[in-house]
């Protein structure tokens, strides 16, 4: 089970990487952490002609405090996110999510940006980015542009990153006073992709929800936000009735796919269970 032959190019600067992408077009793939890409190459599910390795580009890794937000460099390894004090302090949702990503050896190599750019609908970080209104920083030969998370995920493994562009980082607004996060996923085994998971963020006035966002992963072809269900929470506190209302609303709002572990109806059911288990405690219930 060896990959088909490919050429390997190590980019030393962002410009270098962008010009390699420009040169090779569709034949090239970016090699970030490689924890998904390498597996697909080994299985010959994909056979690019050229891999452009962006691991050695200075400045693409690291977590910086930019005032109201944290900028997480695309090449920041999951394990560095996991142990970051800045993340723990300002992005508790990310902190809660990151150690659910695979296993230590994968987290040592896999990157924050790689997870976002790969846009696996079952992955944790894209859903968190949606729930947090993150901003994606995308570089091209013509400069850098920003795309809000809500516009970034366009479909199954599809994002707003255009051919020839590279995701350079993600800005996560710092959690503000009165806001709380919630995260939970249901995976058959620790580190597996979840059957379904939830990333939630809400502002609280006492125990009353405001501006709630619920984003599910492995519930569609991309991270799935459920604004109609979230709206039921706003201005309300937690109750058993609320749990039932949310579950009923989620059954209408979600249209999750079938796979080997679960079908759509099971995912809808579990979405309601997750809402109850995450949102109740967030409200202090």
């Amino acid at each position: 089970m060896k990959p088909a032959p490919f050429a390997y190019a190590k980019a030393s600067t962002l410009e270098d990487a962008l010009s390699l992408l420009a040169e090779h077009g569709d034949d090239a793939r970016i090699l970030a952490g490689g924890q998904s890409l390498m597996a697909t190459l080994n299985m010959r599910l994909s056979a690019p002609q050229v891999l452009v390795d962006i691991n050695r580009i200075d400045g693409l890794a690291g977590i910086n405090d930019t005032g109201d937000a944290l900028r997480i460099g695309a090449m920041t390894r999951h394990s560095d996110v996991e142990t970051s004090d800045l993340i723990a302090q300002h992005a508790p949702l990310i902190a809660a999510a990151v150690d659910h990503i695979a296993h230590p050896a994968i987290r040592n190599r896999g990157t924050f940006g790689g997870s976002i750019a790969f846009a696996d609908p079952a992955a944790e970080l894209p859903a968190c980015a949606m729930a947090l209104d993150a901003t994606m920083h995308i570089a091209g030969l013509n400069g850098e542009r920003d795309v809000p998370a809500a516009d970034f995920f366009e479909g199954l493994y599809e994002t707003a990153i255009q051919p020839g562009e590279i995701l350079t980082g993600v800005s996560i607004p710092k959690i503000a006073d009165g806001w709380k996060s919630g995260f939970m996923e249901l995976a058959r085994r620790r580190g597996d992709y979840a059957i379904i998971g939830i990333a939630a963020q809400a502002k609280f006035d006492g125990s009353t929800f405001g501006d709630a966002r619920l984003v599910y992963f492995n519930a569609g072809d991309r991270p799935v936000s459920t604004p109609q269900t979230a709206a039921l929470l706003n201005g309300q506190g937690w109750s058993d009735d609320m749990a039932e209302k949310l579950a009923a609303s989620l059954k209408r709002e979600l249209d999750p796919p079938d796979d080997l572990n679960a079908d759509g109806p099971m995912r809808k059911h579990l979405a309601g269970v997750l809402a109850k288990r995450v949102l109740g405690p967030m409200a202090g219930a």
Partner: peptide
């Protein structure tokens, strides 16, 4: 050879990595 079993785990630059998912 697809990063799941961990048998190829080695240490690179002070951290464990999957030997099959690193060139």
């Amino acid at each position: 050879e697809h990063g799941v079993c961990g048998a190829c785990t080695i240490r690179m630059d002070g951290r464990i990595v999957r030997g099959c998912l690193t060139l």
